Computed example of a mutant assay.
Amino acid sequence: METLFSGTRCTLTRHGEAVALLALHNPPEGFFDPQSEREVLQALDVTDTLDGLRALILHGRDPGMFVRHYDVKELERIGRALLARDLRFSPDSPPPPGGFHKILERLEAAPYLSIAAINGWCMGGGLELALGCHLRYAQPGDYRIGLLEVQLGLIPGAGGTQRLSRAVGPARALEMLLLGTCVTPEEAARLDLVHALVPDALAHALDVAATLARRPPEVLQHLVHLHRDAQDLTPHEGMARERGAFSQVLRLPQTLQTMADYNAGRITVPEVPACRTAQTPAGR
């Protein structure tokens, strides 16, 4: 693996032509902080220059730690500064996006797919970072996943209130937000907070990334955008956009070749690795 960026909070490496790994680290607490924001944004600047990148995997470098949560000391400092300067914001008059928000915006707008390989503590801002990724996988362990902000008199401030309901449903999300519920990885899988519980989150994410890398990138981007449309548009509008996207990808050279190979018997579907069921808790 080639190291592309190395800092005190994250390390970016390339895993083959199509996949990059962003290892997050801030021992011993594992907090995200302003230095984390600066370094991750620098790492994303590097990913923007990588030709052929199809997937970026975010994972915790240290055992048992993805991102514990955002540094509460820093949040207290910001709150006291707002009070001292009498700066007032509201839902109708919000502040401009900060570094953490820009990270999530860039992941959402990137031409590659992002995967969170959750290998340990993932609460507050850590979960918001994971929720900002297209896919999330967790491995067993003695740690918790959740948005704990209300326990500190806070609310999630980097998309948690918006994205949690898309993962677990509106009713469950509201309860979790109000109680500050943090769950085991097994329960996170049952709630669909993560896509699956797997023995090794990073290894599974690499397998998924390898599968995604074989797909036409235009097809994957259409699927991501249409999935979002299904939540934001009317059914009529979403179906119309789907028809347009279908007609667009139908003539892609890679798509035409893949269909020709199938029709000639050179390949079969379903592809076994892509359809393999990940380990999930019993009873799900």
Rank of each mutant, 00 (worst) to 15 (best):
T184I: 09
F5D: 01
A110V: 07
P170L: 06
Y262P: 00
A23W: 06
F100H: 06
P199I: 10
D33W: 05
D200G: 02
E128W: 00
P281A: 09
D33Y: 07
P253E: 03
M1S: 14
A20W: 00
R228L: 09
T211N: 12
L152E: 11
G99M: 09
R241Q: 12
L206N: 00
G7E: 01
E175F: 14
P253M: 07
R77V: 07
R80Q: 15
P63C: 12
T184Y: 13
D261P: 01
G244R: 12
L212C: 09
P253A: 06
Q162S: 12
E105K: 10
M259W: 12
H101L: 08
A116T: 03
G159M: 09
L135T: 04
L22A: 01
Y262W: 10
I115F: 01
T161V: 13
R14V: 03
P156T: 05
T255R: 03
V198K: 00
A20H: 04
A18S: 15
R88N: 11
W121D: 00
D71C: 15
D261M: 13
L129N: 03
R163Q: 11
P217C: 06
E74I: 07
L44V: 08
A260S: 07
I103C: 01
C182F: 10
L252F: 06
L256A: 09
G60M: 08
T8E: 15
A130L: 04
D86T: 09
T47I: 10
S6E: 14
L135R: 08
P273K: 08
G146L: 04
L177E: 13
T181E: 14
H227F: 11
A173W: 04
E76T: 07
P96W: 11
L174C: 09
R243V: 04
Q162F: 09
E186F: 07
L12A: 03
A203W: 05
F246Y: 13
G120I: 02
E237I: 01
D200T: 07
F100V: 03
D207M: 07
P253V: 08
R80S: 15
G52E: 10
L178I: 10
P27F: 10
M65T: 14
H25F: 14
L202N: 08
G99D: 04
T181I: 10
D192K: 15
M1T: 12
T268S: 11
R241A: 11
V67G: 02
G7R: 01
A278Y: 01
A213V: 11
P253S: 06
Y262G: 05
S247K: 12
T277C: 05
P216Q: 03
A158W: 13
C122F: 05
R144I: 06
P185G: 07
V46N: 01
P281C: 07
E218D: 14
A173I: 09
L58T: 01
A84E: 13
G141F: 02
L53M: 07
G7N: 04
P140D: 05
C275A: 15
A117N: 02
